[in-house]
Computed example of a mutant assay.
Amino acid sequence: MDLRIFTEPQQGADYDTLLAVARATEDLGFDAFFRSDHYLPMGDADGLPGPTDAWITLAGLARETSRIRLGTLMTAGTFRLPGPLAIQVAQVDAMSGGRVEFGLGAGWFEEEHTAYGIPFPAAKFGRLEEQLAIVTGLWGTPAGETFSFAGEHYTLTDSPALPKPAQSRVPVLVGGMGPVRTPRLAAQYADEFNIPFASAEDSARQIERVRDATVEHGRKADDLVYSNALVACVGRDDAEVARRARAIGREVTELKENGLAGSPAEVVDRIGRYQEAGASRMYLQILDLSDLDHLELISDQVQSRLV
């Protein structure tokens, strides 16, 4: 089971804080550093000192780390046009020496759009499908050839389809719990399917849907990596778990029901249930980015017990 660190900077984190977490992620042996793509905090967080842009952040981290994979859960499709987005991601991939992974979602948080003057279209899923076709099409066009696309939402004519990423194929992540269209989209475009904040039982059902859709599309079901994202709150004892829960404004009982909370042994056991459901990768949502001891504990007493 791969463990990856997943951050939510819109809740309140500047670049230096994210850099410290990314360096700890690398030093402690985790597989990757991922971040959300939001411009407005959620819940009671004040979001200070203000939002950071996902791909500008990852560009900086690409030059200040050397091993970990870097990516988004998920880039908001409403924030960027697909052509410039393909350029941005390809550039960050080159800056990192080929360590980028590209998660793309439809976008859903309407308030952040109105707050920053970003259009919030009604037909987001149709746009997402075209965005995936365009971004992967631009990257996959052989050098010296051009790429054109005529869709309902986007049109590209004779694009030189440059620059190319450093990797021959940037891993593409698709995710969600939609029962029909989402599995079909993953089967067509994804290298990884991610299930956010769901139970092991619901995850098993969704993984089965995606596996079936992948086979129907003419691929092997195991061509995709299946992953989950869950909030993490781990402590050496009950008092430490409670302290970490308070720091992120959550209740221990709720965290144990919906996330990865409790002692290292409890968390290892719960991760095992997701592994039995078909997942081989876990994104640990870390909400208190000042608590690097939390990452050290997870590395030492959770990651070390997983196979």
Rank of each mutant, 00 (worst) to 15 (best):
K164V: 00
G43W: 04
T52P: 01
A187G: 04
H217N: 10
L289D: 07
D44K: 14
R209Q: 09
E254C: 06
S203V: 12
G105N: 13
G176I: 08
A200P: 01
Y116L: 11
A221V: 02
A213V: 00
R219G: 06
D14Y: 11
D269P: 03
E111V: 02
G137H: 01
D237S: 04
A229T: 13
I5C: 06
R63Q: 12
W108S: 08
M177Y: 10
T17P: 00
Y15C: 02
S304V: 03
E254F: 15
T182E: 07
H38V: 10
A20C: 06
G12H: 06
P84Y: 03
L18Q: 09
T72L: 05
N194D: 08
E64S: 07
Q303A: 14
E276Y: 02
T7N: 04
I207W: 10
S280T: 15
C233I: 10
V268Q: 06
H153G: 03
M1H: 03
S290P: 01
S203E: 07
I5N: 06
T157W: 07
V234E: 06
T78D: 05
A279V: 13
R305I: 02
T78W: 02
A122S: 13
L48S: 13
S168K: 12
A54R: 07
K256A: 03
D300T: 11
V100D: 00
A239C: 01
I68M: 03
L292S: 10
D27W: 10
A187F: 04
G235N: 00
F149C: 04
I68T: 04
G218M: 13
S290W: 13
A54H: 08
D269G: 07
P51M: 09
S36C: 11
L297A: 05
Y283N: 11
L104R: 13
A200Y: 00
F147G: 07
G107Y: 12
A161E: 01
K124D: 03
S227Y: 14
R205L: 08
G126C: 13
G144E: 08
K220C: 07
E152A: 14
A62R: 02
T65I: 09
T72G: 05
G144P: 05
D222I: 13
E251N: 14
A247S: 15
L292F: 13
E101Q: 11
S159L: 13
T57A: 07
T78K: 02
A24D: 06
A20H: 10
D238E: 15
D31S: 14
D269E: 15
A62T: 04
L132F: 15
